[in-house]
């Protein structure tokens, strides 16, 4: 675990030296928000009409911005040739996975929080004191997304030419019903103020996070094998 933490800290450190990935993820989530705003511009949505659209808009933004982060998490290492270095370290291969999960989780959560702020700004949305339950769902949903996404990212990085397209193609069908649906549902329920109602979805997310971690723990050695 401490080895994983070391890798995560290394990743976050190198990221904050250039900030290029976090910055482009932030700009991207900003663009998605603006795009949504103008897509609904014609209807000049009132706050009641906006209500059912809040959680879909938020999660679509989170997922697409997050996919950007997943894209570079392994490809940077691969292109610099430092992945071999990591693999040569005297530690379990799954430590690399857990390290990547931690750093991706940190960076994507950061982007999620900024996306929430952009959303509030652009749509002049008021959470009415439901922000805390929404944040709980965002933390859990993003975690589920990152544990499955990091594994897929490790697979897709091997496809030299099409890796950019391959991550969404491999990841979306897998998370469609297991992460996206429960997260959106739970966020909608949390926005209505009854987080208790969202417990079945939260439980599903929790269970899937554990299952994906177990699958990754079992299979990640094969992903990195050379």
């Amino acid at each position: 675990m401490s080895q994983g933490l070391a890798i995560a800290i290394k990743d976050i450190k190198t990221e904050f030296r250039t900030k290029e990935m976090v910055f482009s993820m932030l700009v991207f989530s900003l663009f998605v928000m603006v795009a949504f705003y103008f897509a609904f511009y014609f209807y000049s949505l009132s706050s009641e009409a906006l209500e059912p659209l809040v959680s879909p808009i938020l999660w679509v933004t989170f997922f697409f911005a997050g996919m950007f982060g997943l894209l570079t998490s392994f490809s940077k290492e691969k292109d610099r040739g430092s992945l071999e270095g990591l693999m040569l370290c005297p530690m379990d291969r799954s430590a690399i996975y857990f390290g990547k999960v931690l750093s991706n989780y940190f960076l994507i959560l950061l982007v999620d929080i900024f996306a929430l702020i952009f959303f509030v700004l652009f749509f002049s949305y008021d959470f009415n004191g439901n922000l805390l339950p929404v944040l709980v769902v965002v933390f859990l949903g993003t975690f589920c997304f990152v544990v499955s996404g990091t594994l897929i990212s490790g697979i897709a990085v091997n496809a030299q030419d099409i890796r950019g397209v391959l991550i969404p193609i491999l990841l979306i069908p897998i998370i469609l019903l297991t992460v996206l649906m429960p997260s959106v549902n739970a966020t909608s329920k949390a926005l209505e103020g009854d987080i208790i109602d969202a417990i079945p979805e939260l439980r599903i997310l929790g269970v899937f996070a554990v299952i994906y971690i177990a699958i990754a723990y079992l299979l990640f050695d094969f992903v990195l094998e050379e």
Partner: peptide
């Protein structure tokens, strides 16, 4: 992963 995803999708 893909095949394991089916029962999971079913549960959710």
């Amino acid at each position: 992963i893909g095949f394991a995803c089916v029962p999971l999708s079913f549960i959710s």
